[in-house]
Write a protein that binds this DNA or RNA. Sequence first.
DNA 1: TATGAATGAGCCTTCATTCAT
DNA 2: CATGAATGAAGGCTCATTCAT
Lengths: 202, 202, 202, 202
Amino acid sequence: MAVPPTRPALRERYDRKQRTVLATAAQLFAQRGYQRTSVGDLTEATGLAAGGLYHYIGSKEQLLIRICDELMDPLLEQAEAIVATDEPPEVQLRALVRAWVAHVEQHRHHMLVFQQERHTIEREPQWRLVRGKRKAFERLLEQLLERGEQAGTLRFADRQLALLGLLAMVNYTPQWYRPGGRLSAQQVADGYCDLLLDGHRA
Amino acid sequence: MAVPPTRPALRERYDRKQRTVLATAAQLFAQRGYQRTSVGDLTEATGLAAGGLYHYIGSKEQLLIRICDELMDPLLEQAEAIVATDEPPEVQLRALVRAWVAHVEQHRHHMLVFQQERHTIEREPQWRLVRGKRKAFERLLEQLLERGEQAGTLRFADRQLALLGLLAMVNYTPQWYRPGGRLSAQQVADGYCDLLLDGHRA
Amino acid sequence: MAVPPTRPALRERYDRKQRTVLATAAQLFAQRGYQRTSVGDLTEATGLAAGGLYHYIGSKEQLLIRICDELMDPLLEQAEAIVATDEPPEVQLRALVRAWVAHVEQHRHHMLVFQQERHTIEREPQWRLVRGKRKAFERLLEQLLERGEQAGTLRFADRQLALLGLLAMVNYTPQWYRPGGRLSAQQVADGYCDLLLDGHRA
Amino acid sequence: MAVPPTRPALRERYDRKQRTVLATAAQLFAQRGYQRTSVGDLTEATGLAAGGLYHYIGSKEQLLIRICDELMDPLLEQAEAIVATDEPPEVQLRALVRAWVAHVEQHRHHMLVFQQERHTIEREPQWRLVRGKRKAFERLLEQLLERGEQAGTLRFADRQLALLGLLAMVNYTPQWYRPGGRLSAQQVADGYCDLLLDGHRA
DNA sequence: TATGAATGAGCCTTCATTCAT
DNA sequence: CATGAATGAAGGCTCATTCAT
């Protein structure tokens, strides 16, 4: 099992290396799929031998969990910060979607892996924590839309469907987005919001 | 390799059995994922032994290809029929999305598998045909939106983004839709169209 | 997992082959130890490839469990038959020890494995059944000694110690006994009984 | 390789630590078995890291050898001292068995390990020395019984079988003996001797 | 058609050991 | 003395597939 060292200096070196391993793995997983990527592929890509690799990952599945955490933790944190502000719901929503799309695009690989392995995440008990984070984020979004409607600044033909549509669009983004393309992450985010809100503005 | 019988009576029995095998496999794949479903799982679920199963599937990958074909072929056919009508683009679009969502929901399992294995489909040479069907469908959609804009009946802040948003929403549908739920497939389809079109109507 | 066939003819063939696999494995385990014998050693010795071997064993540990069962089941059966007779305790005891030593010597390999892996058997939950058989046999022996004392035909300075001594001697036998040696199994059995009983006869 | 320090003060500290490592290892080996105990288990139990541990053990196998030596060396020494006395054989035998049982019980863990790994000890060349000590002890016992018979004070139905029985009983003792139980080590030793000798006394 | 025994490459992981620090 | 990162061979096991029956 991967037991990180306790002495601060070593701990830092360990964490740094672990992050590069995670990034390399996320990229491979995104390209070939988690299942089709063997530990052999990972050793080759990281330059570590099998044993050395396991120093940092614990197991192939724990590696996947860590990748998902690296995706969800900062996203949740940002989202919570945004909804904690005093801004009106529509402003919060647009800010949140911008942050979300930006995050998703900076973590394209993580996100692709997350989506590909979604059926695993939703079914297996060892994924409960990750699942919980996904649910927390969606709940937060939902409540934001709800507050917007209650405040009268947002209105949806069907709030639930709007939420699902937004989730779909943002989650799907990494499948086509290429950095440096025609649209910036911000433009994409604003475009999504416009689709959601334009027809229903007061 | 699966060599279907030629005499009509036998052929029919063979096809019937093959369809049940496909349906069973699609369900398992949707639940556990294609990779995590072993041929052993398939034998158990179908009641056939390994050898018997291979009469109907050829190989595990051919089975997956057939599932994708079963999803894409009738969809493409319907879509082509719709765009071949004389209706104005907006009407065609709404009809197409209705047909599409209905199809996707009747083939939930197929669709979930298709999405899960998307990275394989997009990368491997032996998936060229399936990939071509997906592209043809998207092209057809794109051209429909384009015609709508040229006709002046549809307008999008960003046509490409609208297309991607629509693809995202419909493709994501099987992940949450449960038959008999609050919304019918038609309502869902109309809801998606409204999101896409409402803000931009003349 | 090893799923034995259900059709009688095939089942018989399966069982026959499984027994030869068990015998081969028991011999290897006895010589090199369970842990030091790799599955590779087993494939080599059985002539089966890895997959074929697993058809019959389920897992390396299940193989070990089966070996222990093959040792304990017939022994317990014989012992129960003997104590169910009308013979006086001393006669039953001598008969039981004879049967026991004979069995142990016909299953030298099984017995050596059983003794070597005893710490596993006594500690791990998945060994509860095997453990139960061992305990049942010892209990049966203990009760036999007890009945002998109550009947007045046997007397021990310390019954518990006598029982432990007998267990020790018989269990240790496969470590030195070679068939065709100076002593027959029967002579060995009688020798053990004499040590136990001679000093204490009425 | 473990190179102990030469300066006396350091050497003493080194030896003290080494003895605690040996004791810890013996206990773990006795509980889980030598093979099933990983060096990782040892580092955890000793509180040393891998490198530090290797200063004291040289290798996992050398550690096992040391444990066996710690068991056999003082035992052989005591036994040789006893047979060098002028006492008659029966007295020597009883004294030896007492010392032996006491030793075995003070080194329960060592003894359990020794017995578990017996097949290794008996087969591998690097175990020649340990094997030699075991043989020397048994030879010494055998000669003692022989002298007793020649002197006419001991008589056995079968001397060889008596010897084997005695070995079996004492070696088996650590599997059931718990300090503070109903019987003291001395009582156990005397019990064994009685079984061996009572039936055959003049 | 259908069975199930058999293959064998490949998988994930463990582990005793070494060595730079 | 001690750490812990790193090695790499070996381990047990799975699985898509084939084939004699």
